[in-house]
Design a binder for these strands. Sequence first.
DNA 1: GCTTGAGCTGGAGTGCACTCCAGCTCGTAA
DNA 2: TTACGAGCTGGAGTGCACTCCAGCTCAAGC
Lengths: 123, 123
Amino acid sequence: MKISEVSEATGLSIDTLRFYEKIGLIDPPPRDAGGRRDYPEEVIGWIGFLDQLNATGMPQADRIRYAELRRQGAATYTERREMLQAHREVIRHKLRKMQDTLALMDRKVEIYETLEEEERSHV
Amino acid sequence: MKISEVSEATGLSIDTLRFYEKIGLIDPPPRDAGGRRDYPEEVIGWIGFLDQLNATGMPQADRIRYAELRRQGAATYTERREMLQAHREVIRHKLRKMQDTLALMDRKVEIYETLEEEERSHV
DNA sequence: GCTTGAGCTGGAGTGCACTCCAGCTCGTAA
DNA sequence: TTACGAGCTGGAGTGCACTCCAGCTCAAGC
C-alpha cells in the first residue's frame, strides 16, 4: 500500500504516518524501486489499534513501549499483557468518571430548561 | 479562602489557579488588605465542574466560552444548555468507544494468556 | 524529453495547557 | 526588627503530539 492509501484508510495524515514511523510506533515498511514506502496491509489494523489506545488516553511513550515489545515477539507476551491490563483499569476509571459527568450533564440540562421556562414566564 | 487552600481542595496547582483566572475560567476573586486573593467557597464547586468538563475532553476554548456565558447570567441559559447538550453527545460517543476498547482489552488479555500458556508448555 | 504530481528527507514551527522563574511585597512569629 | 514564608506580577519555558516547509527525486503521461 502507498502512504496515501494508508492515510486514506486510517484517517492519519501522511505526515503523521511518517512521524509515527520515526518515533517507533509503526515499523519502517519496505520501499519500492523508487524508494517509496510500500506498507503491508496489516498496518491498517495495527494503526486502528494504536488509535484506540490513543483515544482512550494512553500516552505516546506507552504506545511506543508497546510497539517496541511487539517487535520483540513472543518473549514479551507477559509484559504486553500487563500493559493492557493496566490500561484496562485506566479505561474503567475514565468510564466511571464519564458516566458521572454524563449524568451531571443530564441534570444540568434539565435545570437550564426549568430556568429558561421561568425566564419566559415572568416576562 | 486563600489560594493555597483552594489548591489543596481542588488538586489544581497555585500556578494553574492563577492561569485559569488569567484566561477567564475563574472569576478574579476579591483581594484581602495585603492584595492577596480571597476566594469564595463556591469556587471549589465551579472548579470541580470545570474539571469534569476537562476530564471528559471539552477543549479549553469551550470551557472559557462557558465561563464567559455564566458570568453574563440569565440571558445565556439557552446557549449554556446547548453547549452542555452538545458536550453530552461527545461524551456518549467517547463512552461507546471506551466500552469497545475495554472489550478489546479483555479479548487481548485472554489471547496473551493463551499465548503465554503455549510458550510455557513447549519448553 | 519535459512537465506534473506523489513521495522523500531533515528540520523548523505550532497549539494546547500548563509550569517555572526572578524579583517584588506583605503579615506574622521569634 | 528582622527573618521567613506565602503570595504577587509579567513573562519565559516546557512537553506533548503533531504539522508544515524547502528542496530534492522519481515515474508516468503528453
